[in-house]
């Protein structure tokens, strides 16, 4: 059973089953709180919901955090967009389509007022085939390859590709982008350096 609920700062005390995962980054408290303050509706969690005993109303099972999404909005004019900062799922609740569910919720929440963005984007390691495949299924496509995104910044040649350190910037256009101007085909062949990704 899965429900989407708003993330609260106190959830950070219950985040271990999700964040002890090696692939999930742990940030300083201010980073989480900054998202809560600046984009309150775009930081939410999925919970494996509580079950109430119908006979006496007692809680048979409390909410367990099964994953969360940290999103934000940024950019100007046609670059006004939603960005997926982190999406992660508790190992017990993997292979259920939960990450997709969280992404879809963010997409819907920002595809209308008060955000009404042109597109959603995210960065993913070029080697993370599983995630790339999921994003393709959700309607995302590669917009560009950010060479050295996960590196130490020493690579200044956008044509020096390195699968271990490069990221795909993937995008999905939203309703507001009627002419689909914010996405493109063959984005895999467009290389940029990290400092060129500015909004």
């Amino acid at each position: 059973m899965t429900s989407i609920k708003p993330f609260q700062a106190t959830d950070l005390f219950d985040i271990n089953p999700v964040n002890l995962d090696v692939l999930t980054e742990n940030y300083q408290p201010f980073f989480y709180l900054q998202y809560l303050v600046d984009w309150p509706p775009l930081f939410f969690k999925s919970v494996s919901g509580s079950v109430i005993d119908s006979s006496d109303g007692s809680i048979l099972r409390n909410d367990v955090m099964s994953g969360y999404m940290m999103g934000k909005t940024e950019g100007k004019a046609k670059e006004w967009h939603t960005h997926i900062t982190a999406v992660t799922v508790n190992p017990t609740y993997r292979r259920l389509g939960l990450a997709s569910f969280l992404c879809e919720h963010l997409d819907q929440a920002t595809d209308q007022e008060p955000y009404n963005t042109y597109f959603v984007d995210l960065f993913v390691r070029v080697t993370n085939k599983l995630a790339i495949s999921m994003y393709h299924k959700l309607g995302y496509s590669v917009y560009r390859r950010v060479v050295g995104y996960y590196g130490d910044g020493s690579n200044e040649n956008r044509n020096k590709l390195d699968d271990n350190h490069d990221a795909f910037d993937m995008r999905k256009s939203q309703t507001r982008d009627v002419k689909k101007e914010t996405v493109r085909e063959n984005g895999e062949k467009v290389n940029v350096l990290p400092y060129e990704v500015v909004f």
Partner: peptide, 10 residues
């Protein structure tokens, strides 16, 4: 809607 949680967290 986030402040009460932040106060409690702090």
């Amino acid at each position: 809607n986030k402040i009460q949680g932040m106060l409690e967290f702090a």
